[in-house]
Design a protein around this nucleic acid. Sequence first.
RNA 1: GUCCCCAUCGUCUAGUCCGGCCAAGGACACCGCCCUUUCACGGCGGCGACGCCGGUUCAAAUCCGGCUGGGGACGCCA
Length: 467
Amino acid sequence: MRGIVTRFAPSPTGYLHIGGARTALFNWLFARRHGGTFILRIEDTDQERSTPESVVAILEGMTWLGMTWDEGPYYQTERRELYREEAKRLLAEGKAYRCVCTPEELDRRREAARAKGEKPRYDRRCRDLPPSGAEGKPFVVRFKAPLSGTTIVRDLLRGDIAYENEELDDLVLLRSDGSPTYNFVVVVDDATMGITHVLRGDDHLNNTPKQVLLYEALGTLLPRFGHFPLIHGMEGGKLSKRQDDVSVMAYRDRGFLPEAMVNYLVRLGWGHGDQEIFSVEELTRIFSLESVGKSPSRFDPEKLLHLNAHYIKTGNPERLAALLVPFLGKRGFDVEPSPWLVKAVRTFQERSRTLEEMAESSEFYFLCKDPDPKAAEKFFTPEMAPVFEEIAREFADLPDFTPAAMEPVLHRVAEKTGSKLGKVAQPMRVALTGGTVSPGIFEVMDVLGRDEVIRRLSRASRRIRGA
RNA sequence: GUCCCCAUCGUCUAGUCCGGCCAAGGACACCGCCCUUUCACGGCGGCGACGCCGGUUCAAAUCCGGCUGGGGACGCCA
């Protein structure tokens, strides 16, 4: 007995998206919370659309978010014999039948049913066909679902949901090429893998009664089910790749931290009083299905940004520096993590919402940018040239080039010209960073270092003097 | 169309199970003010919701029914 066993079973037809990631997260947290087992299973029964690249992308996304699986990844393509055996058994037991209707015919009938305002589903015309009737023709294997009665789905989040069996359909178990379909493999796999809790999106709720019937036909124990609401895009409705940013890895590439992503995702549909910030470690202790909401939630990039800013602000600067390196590289700065870089990072932790923003705004640390034209016009006035020169001279004579030592210099110079610190600080900022927005001027100088500061001040004064 | 699910600020949510503690709390966003060498951070304040109608009850965001609205599913996709 392994206690609780959950699984995440994505189909490898694209990258790991926001919705899938949250499904995985809930399953993972639930297993961790109860000391259970979390299984990763790749549902690659759709030969047409499954790709090995997608598998890699999904594993990469899981790993980035820190979700470790205890078993798998299992691949359904490697378990085909099992499904075939089970289908054969159902056929032999009269719980399934061969259907020779062609996809085209089915399409036509579905359309006709829809036109008449009926529920489009299989009319079961092959259900009682003698085995000889399928002779020589391609066939699919269908499940012989009961025609009457009621099937109850016991859902952990929603309670009991009753379905009239006459509403249900005769599912295709095996396609005409012999490959199994989703609704079949999911039941066979969940049963044979001993999954105790099937936690998945709401979009599977209506499949569940059919699956329950299948479990019964197979003679296996039923897992517990829990269907949580879908995540909607900002426009409402299912997240769409078209109008919503849904790839998890795209967020990494834009400078989001995995802990921010996890924190955001878990709060979409789950709450714990008024608390907003959760570490992964804490989540694995307190996550509970009872606190998962029943109504759908919208994906709000603004709030994710806010959380990311929080984790950057409070994050370990050494780690952030290392994570920042590739973003700097993208902008053409070939830097290595170093104590100096860490110091630079510290000056931006409180003013960056993403690593990408940090890389962008910290560019001036790596090259002496030309001043922004408007800023230069406003702050590089003729009287600033001698001020810059004097400050440079005094800096050169300072025994230690520390913020504590620099500060009196600026105050003295400011007083001499009868102005406040701001009058000097802002032009200095333009001279040193090229713009009017930056970390505190003393912090900036501390990172830049004495030589570079003097160099940039001289450059600015030369510029003012028109040299 | 049929079936299923859902319904508290613009958004994420607390409260709903066990009606009174809720003239509904927190967070994001937005708007002010304060702090301040810029920008941020931070602090303070503001804006802002129980979808509607009925019922039960001394009392309903909380229980019941209907309506409306939103979403999902109806594949040889998963």
